[in-house]
């Protein structure tokens, strides 16, 4: 009796063992898969630390405030905006690099800290060494000039510059803005026929242009819209169309794509610590996309005169690298 019972007991035991093994295996499989599933579902799992590498009140800061207003709806958590300004945005960038790659810290970057690092002999960081989950906008440097001059259209401008008898033309604008026309003209071998005059702000450049102290000025979309009535809008150096709100005023302005030239697309982008795992970068990129689509957020973005150009995690990194290469190529024009 004892044997069968033992057998029986053994069977029972085996059954139990098999069941347990299965359960364990199942649990392990679950344990292996479940976290990533729930991670994706619940990501971000806590407040997203959002570093703005500029002081309160600037363009990037305004983007951050507007985006954070919709964070709870989309992320399920808030965005904690931290301004870390100074040294042309490099302080904030360095702050992110010195922090942890926790997947919950992002930097809202613009080309300014990238350029600042490229200018430095011993830069505090390598601008190529970051993860870019998404672009949230692309600036559209737009060249503006007087209406009554031979160079008031792109063709006119090119012809004017090709004629060596004409004087060089001065173009004012911020350095990022100026890289746009600089790259277009360089593709035609005309970069030395213009004088790039850097300004610390678009406002100052427009002031000098309106006073007739410089020939042309390169500005943002919203400024170009304001100037369109009395001035010629010559070219948009990106391959993108203007946002709906500006299309009426800026109708018919050629861009790099329509001219068959390589565009210069200066991005506003989200950056993450280079050690952040790729899946987290991807998820963050997608979440940013959702956030930008949020009705309330997109309405506010329109109100502050900006437009969303979303580039997702699949393309953002490569496009960023391209812009970086372009900037490196044309920065020597300023030196």
């Amino acid at each position: 009796m004892s044997r069968p019972s033992l057998e029986h007991g053994g069977k029972k035991f085996m059954k139990f063992l098999t069941r347990s093994a299965l359960a364990l295996a199942g649990a392990t499989t679950l344990a292996m898969t479940a976290p990533s599933l729930s991670f994706a579902d619940s990501y971000p799992s806590t407040t997203v630390k959002t570093i703005v590498p500029f002081g309160a009140g600037g363009g990037t800061d305004r983007w951050a405030r507007v985006m954070s207003s919709g964070a709870f709806d989309v992320f399920g958590h808030g965005m904690h905006v931290q301004n870390r300004g100074g040294a042309s945005g490099t302080i904030g960038w360095k702050y992110m690099m010195d922090g942890k790659a926790d997947g919950h810290s992002i930097l809202l970057a613009s080309p300014t800290p990238v350029m600042a690092a490229l200018m430095e002999k011993k830069p505090p960081y390598d601008p190529a060494n970051i993860k870019v989950p998404a672009y949230y906008s692309i600036m559209k440097p737009t060249l503006v000039g007087p209406k009554d001059k031979p160079y008031s259209t792109w063709e006119g401008l090119v012809a004017y510059l090709k004629d060596k008898n004409n004087k060089k033309l001065s173009i004012g604008g911020t350095m990022t803005q100026l890289l746009g026309p600089a790259s277009l003209l360089a593709q035609l071998g005309l970069e030395n026929r213009v004088i790039l005059v850097p300004y610390s702000g678009t406002g100052k450049a427009v002031n000098d242009y309106l006073g007739g102290h410089i020939a042309l000025v390169n500005v943002t979309t919203s400024t170009a819209t304001g100037l369109a009535k009395d001035h010629a809008i010559i070219v948009n150096s990106t391959d993108l169309d203007y946002p709906k709100s500006a299309q009426k005023a800026l109708a018919g302005v050629p861009n790099a794509k329509s001219l068959g030239l390589k565009p210069f697309n200066p991005p506003r982008f989200v950056a993450m610590h280079p050690d952040t795992p790729d899946d987290q970068v991807k998820m963050m990129g997608e979440k940013i996309g959702e956030l930008l689509k949020n009705k309330a957020v997109s309405k506010l973005i329109g109100k502050i005169g900006e437009d969303v150009v979303y580039v997702g995690p699949d393309k953002a990194q490569a496009q960023y690298q391209e812009v970086l290469d372009e900037a490196k190529k044309y920065l020597p024009l300023f030196q």
Partner: peptide, 23 residues
């Protein structure tokens, strides 16, 4: 801080955080 024409940092005593000058 940055040279007004070339934006290259100058007179920073090799301190990167002075690249934009003293405010």
């Amino acid at each position: 801080g940055a040279d007004p024409v070339s934006s290259i940092p100058r007179n920073t005593f090799d301190l990167w955080w002075l690249a934009d000058g003293v405010h």
